[in-house]
Structure formats: C-alpha cells, structure tokens
Design a protein around this nucleic acid. Sequence first.
DNA 1: CTGTTAGCGCTTTCAA
DNA 2: TTGAAAGCGCTAACAG
Lengths: 343, 343
Amino acid sequence: MSFKKRRVKLEDIARKLNISIATVSRALDKNPRVKRSTQEKVFITAKEMGYMPNQIAKSLSSGKTHIIGVLIPRYDEPFFIEVCRGIDQYARNHNYKILISSSRNSYEFEKENLISFERGLVDGIILSPTHETENVAHLKDLIGKGMPMVLFDNIREEVSGADHVMIDDEKASFQAVEFLIQKGKRKIAFIGGIKQKKVFQDRFKGYIAALDRHNIIYDERLVLHCNSLDREFEDKEILSFFKNLKINPDAVFTCTDNYGLLTMKTLLKTGKKIPQEVAVIGFGDLGLGEVFVPTLTCVSQPSFEMGQKAAELLIKQLNEPEDSIHKKTIVKLNTQLIEREST
Amino acid sequence: MSFKKRRVKLEDIARKLNISIATVSRALDKNPRVKRSTQEKVFITAKEMGYMPNQIAKSLSSGKTHIIGVLIPRYDEPFFIEVCRGIDQYARNHNYKILISSSRNSYEFEKENLISFERGLVDGIILSPTHETENVAHLKDLIGKGMPMVLFDNIREEVSGADHVMIDDEKASFQAVEFLIQKGKRKIAFIGGIKQKKVFQDRFKGYIAALDRHNIIYDERLVLHCNSLDREFEDKEILSFFKNLKINPDAVFTCTDNYGLLTMKTLLKTGKKIPQEVAVIGFGDLGLGEVFVPTLTCVSQPSFEMGQKAAELLIKQLNEPEDSIHKKTIVKLNTQLIEREST
DNA sequence: CTGTTAGCGCTTTCAA
DNA sequence: TTGAAAGCGCTAACAG
C-alpha cells in the first residue's frame, strides 16, 4: 500500500522545526516539560503537515494497544449484541476500542480465538463461555500469563483472577414463576435452552424452586429443554413440543424472548387465548416483546449494563499496577419483571 | 501488565538453538530456504517454550495489520449485524480480523472514526454511510491517501476508488408494490424511513413507479416517511400515522421489517384482518417476520452476502500491487420477494 | 542454507 | 527544556 509509505512521521516534523524527535513526541503528548512555545509550534506544524500518529508503532513501543478483545458465542443473538454495545460505549469513553470475535458456540473456536488474542493485539479480554466450555483451563492459563479478563453471562465455574458479571438467574426465574402462580396459574410449562448452559440450569432451578415453594407438583411432561443452537430449529422444536403435549398448561415460562414469542405464536395458532387461557413470560427483554400482539411479559435482563460493567471492570484491571495480584470482583446485576399483555 | 514482559520471543528461541533470529523467523514462516532439520528444531523448541508471535511487532515491521475496519451507522439494526457476520466469515477465512465501529447515525462520528482508522490499525475499510453523510470528501480524502475502501448499503453518490456493494432498491420495491397491485390492491400505503437515506429514496421511487405503471393515482396522504432513528419512536410515529389516517388502505408497503411488524401490530389492534382487509409487506427479512402472527411477507435483502461480497472486494484490493490504480467495482445483489401470510 | 544488519515509528531513559 | 540513543519484536535485504 502506498498508504503507509508517504505518511508524515515525527521525524518529518522534527526536521522541519530543527528539533529532536523526542521533543516532538513529548510536545504532542502535552508533556509539561516542553516549553510552551515549542509545543505550540509542534502542534501547528503537525497539523499543517497532516501528521497522523502510527498506532502500531505506539503500541509496540508502549506495550499497550488500547484494544479490548470481546469473545461471544454468537452474533445472531440480540443479547450479546446489546452487551457489546454496552462494552463499546464504556470502552470508547475511556479511549479503548473493541475487537469482537465469535466462538460460534464451540469450545474449540473459543480456544482458537483466545490464542489469537494472546498474540498481543489486545490488552485484555471480555468473554462469555460457550455451552461446550466445561473446562476453564484455557482461561486460567491465559490469566496466569497475565492477561486481564472479565467473564459474563454463562459462568459455569468461578475462575480466580477474572472478574465476573452476571445476573441471578435462579432468582429471576423464581420470581417470574411465582408471579404466574400468584396470578392463579398452576400448570406452568417450562421452556429452557440447552441443558449444558449454566444460565439455563439456573433458570430451571428457579422454576422448580417456585413450584416447590407453592406446593405445586413438578410435572416433567411440561418441561422442554430446547437443544437447538439455530433459530430455524428452535421454531420446530417448540412447535412439536406443544403438538405432542398431552396436558394443557395454563402458563408457560420461557428462558429467552425468542422462545416466548415462538410459544405465543404456537399457542395462537391453536386458537388459545393469551393470557386468559395461557399466560406466557419471556426472558431478556430485547425489544421484540413489545412489538408482538399481544405484547410479551418478560424478565428484563440488563444486557447493556452488563456490557458497561464488564468494560468498567476490565479497564480497572488494566490500570492496576503491574505486579499487584488482582482480586476477583463478582458483580450481580438486578433483573426486573416487565408486565405486559401476555400475563 | 506482566503479560508482555515474560513473553518468549524469537531471540529466546535463537539463543537456545544457537542460531540467528533471522533463521528462526524464516523457519516459523516455513520459508523453503531453511534446512528441513532446522525448521523442525525451531518448531519443536518454539512449541516447548510456548512461543507466541507478537502481532504488533509483525505489523509494524510488515506494514500490514490484517485487520479490516468496519464502520456501520448503528449496532441495533439486525441488517448491519448480518452484514458484519458476512464480512467476518469471509475475512476470517482469509486470515483477516474485523474491527467494528458505529458512527451512531452521525456524520461527525463517521469522520471521527475514520480518523482513528487512519492511524494505521486497519489495512482497509468497509463502510456504510450515515443518512447525514451528504458530502463524501472525507472518504475521497482517505482513499486518496491510499486507504482501500468498500462502501455498502446507503450510497448516495459514487465514490471513485472505492468498490460498492448494493441492491437495486428501486426495483425491489417496484416489484413488491406491483405484487400487491396484482393481488387486487389499489389503496397502497407507503411507510419509509428518513428521507435523507438514499435507500429509502429509492424504495419510494419504486413505489411511485409501480403505481404509475398501473395507473393508480398517487395519494400523498397514504405516505409516511418515518423520521425516527430510534426503535422507541418508530412505534409511536407509525401508531399516530394510522390513527390520523383518513383513508383506509388495502395494503401497506413498508421499508423495513420493523415497520412492517409495527404496521401489522397497529392494524391488528384496530381490528383489521390481515391480509383480507389490509396486506402488509416488509423489507429486509431478518428473521422476525416468520415469528409474528401472521407471518410477514418480505422483500428479502441478502445481508449476509452483502457482507461477504464487501469483504471479498476489499481483500482483493489489499492484494493488488501497491502502485496499481484501483478501478471501481460495483456489485448489485439480487433481492427476492418472500411470500408469507400477510399478503 | 544462514547470519548480519538496518529498519518499522514511537517512547523513554539518561545526560546535558 | 531539550537531545541522543537504546529498544519494543519482528521482517527482509544483503552478504556470504
């Protein structure tokens, strides 16, 4: 590329002003040890010449890239995009950029991506483990090498040295199910996601706990753990679940917005009245619930805030003195039940 | 960070094997001029010592970062995310990473982001101009400096030196509206987006052209150009449009999926039968149309493919010889009308 | 086939 | 307040 070639560099400014490169560097840094008049001259000349610092050279020299690596299981999940937005906002305000990668729901790709992050391009990592990630040795390994890390969402096991940002999934789901019970519902179905995911396990626990608390007998026929990792198949899985269902539930608690919408769709097709005959609750609250008719009651998960918080914690780590031992912070954000027409 | 400090580098391997750094570098590069046995030794030792190349140093030295900068107007628009997925897939397969930034619908932020891309972190740029971007001087300027660039989606003005990836918005919308007419619809409403966006202008043209062709008189009362840049307000704008509408349309052609869904929602609330009384068409086809009841007929825009194509064109530019003058490629991808229950 | 050496553009001691 | 010079880790031209 001719791009790099003809670029103005510190040396050019220095030569033009008959001063040293070091002084130019300091001046542009607004280092107070540079004479005011020199600084001004440098700024003016830099501007005139169209100087643009070379980020790569800066990074090599300083050892900091000011880039945060973000690793999420998939792009086509609004939750993760929201988290990324949160990270991005906080990061940008603190002069960091983010580099997003997807592990495509695969433990292998997760490791692969981390290796590429290890090549010095990022100053730290924010990561949501895939459902396949049973073992966190690769994370511990990287942390051991000094890589700052913050985990969010699907944390199966605490990882010392990394900060964690999560919600209380069990509690959130407990409250949602209890809410249904208080509305007089008794035959409450549960639609969760892949069993391997900690978040879905916890939401299931909350469901069970709420039933227990109110002396409702658990009926496993009312439970579906969706196995699909793909939008297309979720649809079919839920459809066939309801088709084969022998009992008529009077409410359905679902673990994502999409499950909630698909459930409503399926129920409406079979002529059910929502919420009179069947109430439905979703989880996430990422905007779609408001568009549907009827609108979907949701557990609202603070996705954007999770991102912001994760970025905040990571940047805090990045500013810790080099040799200090990081003590883990665990942040649990609050969820909220947003009542709409489906309950 | 202690991270950078204790890292194994070429020098360490070289010293251990009593060979030069250059040889180690070549060996790891699989340079055929290195003796087979040496290469093997180097690989083994590198692995043993846990060597991890420093991407930054490589970039500084080689002048290539293997990072593509992607600039989109907003994150919370599934279309852009799909395009990014497409870019990411193609880029990854060709050993590039992508760095996504949002211009947050602002011309100023667009310029700001480009400046930061100009600092040498990216080898090239894929960009969708904001609706505010009336002037493309900043793009031409950067291209003039040798920055490879591909534009997609909202291209108001051809920019020489950059490749373009788009769809034929006018034709797509013409076909959709004609389809409604052929279904016997005559009072077809139009819901578009901000007027400043080229894509919406073109979709409006297609609407007009289809009416013209079929001798239907244009009635401006049936037209809404949504001004909202925010999901929240789109809702209200569409609601109030229909509330104040004096005529009853028998069909609505809308310029995004979301407008289509909001339209259906509004119509359903007022007791309309879809599609018997009013047919609705959306634009984009990013998955939601299938969930709604009734499902939404859509103009399907090949978002993922747009991303792939954009990445392909950019990477092609990156591989062109340094001094060659790039001749612009314009790619127009095909759309397709997906018929569902709303028509 | 391998080593030497000069950068890449910037930061940062150390000296003046 | 400024300059000289070393160095960040790697690549690549040149020499052998």
